[in-house]
Amino acid sequence: MTTTAWVFPGQGSQKIGMQADLENIPTAKAKLDRAEEILGWSILEVCKNEPEKLSRTLYTQPCLYAIASILADLLFAAGQNPQYVAGHSLGEYVALYAAGAYDFETGLQLVKRRGELMDAAEGGKMYALMGFDREQLQAKIDETADVVLANDNSAAQVVISGTPAAVDRVVAAVKSKRAIELNVSGAFHSHLMKEASQKFNEILDKVTFNESKIPVLANVEPTPTTHAGELKARLQQQMTGSVRWREIMDAIAANEVEKIIEVGPSQVLTGLFKRAYSKIPRSNISSMADIAAID
């Protein structure tokens, strides 16, 4: 048996047409119909015809969750089974679903509320930095109030988050090959999301988690666990905590994973694995056609 990890991308991986051929599959269509009942709007319509909505957090997160969850279902139905799962930010919700920590409807309701709260966030800024001196960056973050390392994606790619003034000071002070401002409304994965996180956790506290069938590596604690209490506690910290993706990749490699499958409409995470651990084979699943062609 090949030791495999499934990884699920987060916000930013969405694209028009990402529903691909899923709407013609009865089990997938049933989940999309159920999602419309929960959300009050159609994922299919947004994914097919409404690019402005799809780029807005309120819609992006439920769309990505539903599509990736359906792809995971179809992979299982095709006889594929991972030994580890992990997701980047929003993708962690799909990873928890795939692992059996909760059902599809519960995850979607959580993601719906998460998207609403994050969409309403104001007063923050996020920048992606590529090709920088890590020690210099960390030193500048340490001496600057109201800015944090939000996404530690790889040795050469991070995202910082905080108040606009604080983020601008760090970007101006740290030399990098490329710096890109992200199109987001708030300072996600920072202490500035504390109020939103508290409101979200009022909902999350009421959800009962199952022991997962597959070990999950969480954003805030990149060690595999199946323990229901740990999985929930880690998710409770996620909105204000950093996405420690670089460490997740290290942990996956340390557990001798032999294949990475990115489940969702992008190649972002497999791209990060390619640069960090090029010897681990990678593939991407974004449609039923991809599943049919998998080894």
Rank of each mutant, 00 (worst) to 15 (best):
D205I: 05
D205M: 01
K206F: 11
K206H: 12
V207I: 15
V207W: 11
V207S: 10
V207R: 09
V207T: 14
T208S: 15
T208G: 10
F209G: 12
F209C: 10
F209E: 11
F209W: 10
F209P: 11
E211N: 13
E211I: 09
E211V: 12
E211W: 11
S212E: 06
S212Y: 04
K213V: 01
K213H: 03
I214H: 05
I214T: 11
I214A: 11
P215I: 13
P215N: 10
P215M: 06
V216R: 03
L217G: 04
L217C: 06
A218W: 06
A218L: 15
N219H: 09
N219V: 08
N219I: 10
V220Y: 08
E221S: 14
E221Q: 12
P222T: 10
P222I: 08
T223K: 14
P224A: 14
T225H: 09
T225K: 08
T225R: 06
T226W: 07
T226S: 08
H227D: 15
A228C: 08
G229N: 14
G229F: 10
G229H: 09
E230Q: 13
E230H: 12
L231I: 10
R234A: 13
R234G: 14
L235M: 09
L235G: 06
Q236F: 09
Q237T: 12
Q237H: 13
Q238C: 01
M239A: 04
M239Y: 02
T240I: 14
T240W: 01
G241C: 07
G241N: 08
G241K: 04
S242K: 02
R244S: 07
R244M: 11
W245I: 01
R246I: 05
E247G: 09
I248L: 11
M249D: 01
D250N: 14
D250T: 15
D250Y: 08
A251V: 07
A251H: 05
I252K: 01
I252C: 05
I252D: 00
A253S: 12
A253E: 13
A253W: 07
A254L: 10
N255P: 01
V257D: 02
K259P: 06
K259V: 11
K259Y: 08
I260H: 00
I260A: 00
I261H: 04
E262R: 04
E262D: 06
V263M: 05
G264K: 03
G264S: 11
S266N: 02
S266Q: 05
Q267M: 06
Q267G: 15
V268P: 00
V268G: 00
V268M: 01
V268H: 02
V268S: 01
L269S: 00
T270P: 01
G271E: 04
G271D: 05
G271I: 00
L272V: 09
F273W: 13
K274A: 12
R275I: 11
R275A: 15
A276N: 03
A276S: 10
Y277G: 05
Y277L: 09
Y277V: 10
Y277F: 14
K279Q: 13
K279S: 14
I280L: 02
I280N: 03
